[in-house]
Design a protein around this nucleic acid. Structure first.
Lengths: 206, 206
DNA sequence: TGTTTTCACTAAACACTGTTTATTATATTT
DNA sequence: AAATATAATAAACAGTGTTTAGTGAAAACA
């Protein structure tokens, strides 16, 4: 009696179909400008059908949000080849910058937007994917301590939060157009310079 | 013939009436949940009337956004009594933290939300209020250089952006619930600890 | 097999949203 | 007093997320 298995498979395929259409539309025209009706039209189903597979729009956003973390973690894998822990940390920072600038909509969804965090499954699953990326940062820092790059007294969790805060602040000021009053067009250079300065600060303090 | 003067005055009063009602509703129930119709109802006018005084909802948000900067700058005034420039910088940081945590909706509007930056007058006026607050930070840093707290080689603009980025990152991770995977309820302490660590980093590097 | 039940799907409705347009009533000017 | 300008609005437009009642086909039961 493989019927229930087939149905389950079909259900998963349908969820994937919806998610894929949503992803394309969201990344192409932005989140605000993409409606459930747009997504339904793209997959040639009625809007009501989407609600048979996702509780609401926020849950759809949360699923995309998780996919974003998977993509980011995949790119972080490029960093593990770097041997020296501090260099690895810097490479991780650069990778984070790169990811955010190349995928602004996705970064926005993952770290700035309210909507995906309003879904229930986020509190239930305790935002698993986010925690795993943070863990990656913590491990890299603890390696820096082991090899003597950082002081042994360094509080790993505090240092991680501090580094993440800086990176995220720099990027979100940029993405949300709060650096617009620098009238020159050197925003990208400013970001690079600020990152370099912060790396120097890390080198000297921790 | 004081009629045109009176009309101008009445127009300004009406703009103020709308803005005040908008402010109350926005800060009480959030921006997404406040509609033009809600605001119109609060002041007992039709929704269409609001469009005679503000181009659209974004312009209304931008006006509120400017009022937010005025309030913040007012609170920054508490800091000028601090004599030592570095202590003044730390006090400024604490004041910024305090402002954001006590006025989360306002901070969101000023530094995170997309909407107010989409209005035209923002590009025209080059976001004056924002620039002025940034100037305040720059001046404090240049004082730190003058008194030898910071190296004379420090790039003032870069240091300002770096400090602002950290502060904003820490706060927006908090406000947008991205620190939720720390399952303990020590979020406020974590913010304090991270701030302290960053201050140490400044002390040692710049 | 025929009948019943289950289930995916949808048309239509609900209660909203920001914004525009045509119209009315009032205030100002001629 | 008549003509004009202006402030305010009712109603409409074109959307939004979401729910409900109902339909046709597939699956389960007899």
């Amino acid at each position: 009696m493989g019927i229930v298995e087939r149905k389950e498979r079909e259900r998963e395929e349908m969820r994937e179909l919806i998610l894929e259409a949503a992803r394309k539309l969201f990344l192409a025209q932005g989140f605000d400008k993409t409606s459930i009706r747009n997504i339904a039209e793209a997959i040639e189903y009625s809007p009501a059908t989407i609600y048979l597979y996702y509780k609401d729009k926020n849950e759809l956003l949360f699923s995309l949000h998780e996919a974003g973390f998977q993509k980011m973690m995949q790119e972080f894998a490029n960093v593990v080849i770097v041997k020296d822990p501090f260099e690895k940390l810097v490479a991780l920072g650069n990778q984070y910058l790169k990811f955010a600038i190349e995928n602004p909509e996705l970064y926005d969804l993952m770290f700035i937007m309210d909507a995906p965090m309003e879904t229930l499954s986020c509190r239930e699953e305790a935002w698993d994917e986010g925690a795993r990326s943070f863990e990656f940062l913590k491990i890299t820092i603890s390696e820096c301590i082991e090899t003597g790059h950082f002081k042994s007294t360094t509080d790993i969790e505090n240092a991680s939060l501090t580094i993440w805060s800086f990176m995220h602040g720099l990027l979100s000021l940029h993405l949300r157009k709060r650096m617009a009053f620098f009238e020159d067009n050197r925003e990208m250079e400013r970001i690079q310079d600020s990152f370099k300065l912060f790396v120097e600060m890390l080198k000297c303090t921790l």
